[in-house]
């Protein structure tokens, strides 16, 4: 059994104190293996977003441990934590969170800018990420001038630009119509398959969840069910074999870097 890239060990999270205390998570354990696609499924208020925030190291659990590559993430503080967030994770949000006045390229290269990458290099990598999502010709447009599907592709380009090992997608298709949503889904799953990037999708959409290798159902702060897709399992088995030659040794090294 390989060391999971992300793991939650009996994680609890509560907000407030005394009578107003609210337990968002009541003891969740979860292993996420490098290269898999996993859906965290639940209704709003189920605690699925809180779980994502904890896994993405944006928040700290009240008790329990979040592990990154087998190490307790609570040990990461200050600039180490910021560097880890910057280099390990990419985010795709339902509401896009694009800076309206800035150009598409500037939006995409924001993580590189935060990492302190120089202008020319930033531009090159930004253009490469945009080309990957067939948006190279929109680089100079303002982010506000794009359609919903284009915006979400820009967001995916932004999530990819710093070469992360994990992409968190929070209701990635929530703001898109069915056809555009399907295109965005295809892009995400293609990335997962072709580059071995770990995909964590938070959603209440059963159809989207069904496309993932694995589904974790959350209700009232507890994992109520887990399912592995036979179809995808077979498919993934295929992919794992295909990737086995290049992935395993490479995978660990990449994460540690």
């Amino acid at each position: 059994m390989p060391v999971p890239i992300l793991a939650a060990r009996d994680v609890r999270k509560s907000y407030g104190r005394g009578p107003t205390r609210f337990d968002a998570l009541k003891g969740v354990s979860l292993d996420i293996v490098e290269g898999e696609s996993i859906a965290i499924v639940g209704k709003s208020g189920s605690g699925k977003s809180t779980l994502m925030h904890l896994l993405a190291l944006l928040d700290q659990p009240s008790s329990g441990v979040v592990e990154l590559n087998g190490r307790d993430a609570a040990g990461l503080r200050g600039s180490n934590l910021n560097t880890t967030r910057n280099q390990t994770f990419g985010f795709v949000f339902q509401q896009f969170f694009l800076t309206p006045g800035a150009s598409v390229l500037d939006n995409v290269t924001l993580p590189l800018k935060i990492a302190g990458v120089r202008g020319a290099e930033r531009r090159r990598r930004g253009m490469a990420a945009l080309a990957q999502l067939e948006l190279a010709d929109k680089a100079k447009n303002k982010a506000t001038d794009l359609s919903g599907g284009q915006k979400q592709r820009v967001v995916i380009a932004r999530a990819l630009v710093n070469d992360p090992s994990v992409i968190f997608a929070d209701e990635p298709t929530g703001n898109l119509d069915t056809a555009t949503g399907a295109v965005v889904e295809d892009i995400l799953f293609d990335l997962n398959r072709s580059t071995g990037i770990t995909l964590i999708i938070v959603t209440h959409d059963e159809e989207l969840a069904a496309r993932c290798d694995r589904r974790v159902y959350i209700r009232d702060g507890l994992v109520v069910d887990e399912a592995t897709s036979a179809h995808h399992d077979a498919h993934r088995g295929h992919g794992a074999h295909a990737g086995a030659a290049e992935q395993p040794a490479d995978g660990d090294g990449e994460v540690a870097a």
């Binding site: 944006l58 200050g78 934590l81 910021n82 967030r85 910057n86 985010f91 969170f97 924001l110 935060i114």
Partner: peptide, 15 residues
């Protein structure tokens, strides 16, 4: 939201 996004992407409070 922009500030939140930048912080999520690893921008420090000092910056």
């Amino acid at each position: 939201r922009e500030i939140g996004l930048m912080k999520a992407m690893g921008m420090s409070g000092g910056r």
